[in-house]
């Protein structure tokens, strides 16, 4: 059973990695969609928390992307890309999810977290203590 620090968006990234590790052979479509979703929310929530943007609901996603368009276009673009992937994974069930989609989401998420200084060399961030081992 997995558990994590629920107040830390980065934990979603590690959950996505863990799920990816355990679902690739064979690729489980439903789990792949969850991975893509968690990867987006890890990046989005981390970016939101570091921004001055507040609010909830549908518009906050665009607000955060717009915030980083002024601050860091690389992050903004990545968030927009991840957002689309997540929406396709969750809403367009007629489109099969591929390993490439999963990989793109995980690497995109990692890029955002790295750019925001939340990952230390791609590993666990300083001070981060997962409650269980993701292995």
């Amino acid at each position: 059973m997995l558990s994590s620090q629920s107040d830390d968006p980065v934990s979603f990234y590690f959950l996505a990695l863990w799920l990816n590790k355990h679902s690739q052979d064979p690729l489980v479509p439903e789990i792949s969609r969850v991975i893509i979703g968690r990867a987006y929310y890890a990046a989005f929530l981390a970016a939101r928390d570091l921004s001055n943007e507040e609010g909830a609901g549908a518009m906050i996603h665009g607000q955060v992307i717009e915030y980083y368009r002024r601050k860091d276009r690389y992050v903004s673009n990545k968030l927009a890309d991840l957002k689309k992937q997540r929406e396709m994974a969750d809403y367009v069930l007629t489109k099969p999810v591929t390993l490439m989609d999963v990989k793109a989401s995980l690497t995109g998420c990692r890029s955002v977290l790295n750019k925001l200084g939340l990952l230390d060399g791609g590993g666990f961030p300083e001070g981060y203590k997962p409650l269980v081992a993701y292995s």
Binding site: A58, M59, H61, G62, K83, K84, E87, M88, Y91
Partner: peptide, 9 residues
């Protein structure tokens, strides 16, 4: 083109 089902952008 992609229109978001969430925010319709």
């Amino acid at each position: 083109l992609w229109t978001s089902p969430v925010d319709e952008e």
